[in-house]
């Protein structure tokens, strides 16, 4: 059987900074994963990384109660999937955080800090820049 895969694909999603919109993000990622022909486990990893990165923006970028947006641009090209997450909230570099120490005992493990750690584990590259009043987080992963 001849299967044609798309070499180039681009899509965009804009969400409010409302955590209840995360299911829309999951739907968006699932759609891209399906079109790109990714298997279930890669699709789930991408979902997880994106939920972590985007919910971080939704929860912390803007003052509580203000209705603002977060934009997600996805590109699939040359066997790589790229997500660009941008918001105009307070400047914050999630990549600057020290990696979680996953070898600590139950008593010593801090409760938080695993979100961005998993983003870094799942994706190949995670880059942050603050440009023109915007936080721009770029995530890439090879899907060859």
């Amino acid at each position: 059987m001849f299967v044609k895969t798309k070499a180039f694909m681009e899509s965009k999603l804009v969400l409010d900074n409302d955590i209840q919109q995360i299911p829309q993000l999951a739907e968006f990622i699932d759609g891209i994963a399906e079109q790109a022909g990714l298997d279930m486990s890669v699709s789930m990893s991408l979902n997880l990384a994106m939920e972590e990165a985007v919910s971080n923006v939704m929860l912390y970028a803007y003052p509580q109660g203000s209705k603002r947006q977060v934009q997600i641009d996805a590109t699939v090209q040359d066997g790589t999937i790229k997500f660009v997450i941008s918001d105009s909230g307070i400047p914050f570099d999630p990549t600057a955080k020290q990696d979680a120490n996953i070898d600590l005992s139950v008593e010593d493990r801090p409760i938080g800090g695993l979100g961005i750690y998993m983003v870094k584990q799942i994706m190949d590259t995670v880059n942050y820049e603050y440009k023109d009043g915007k936080n721009i987080l770029t995530l890439t992963k090879s899907i060859k």
Partner: peptide, 11 residues
């Protein structure tokens, strides 16, 4: 499915 917010609850 589980994400970090779920892991927090388990921990």
């Amino acid at each position: 499915y589980i994400s970090s917010s779920g892991l927090r609850i388990l921990l």
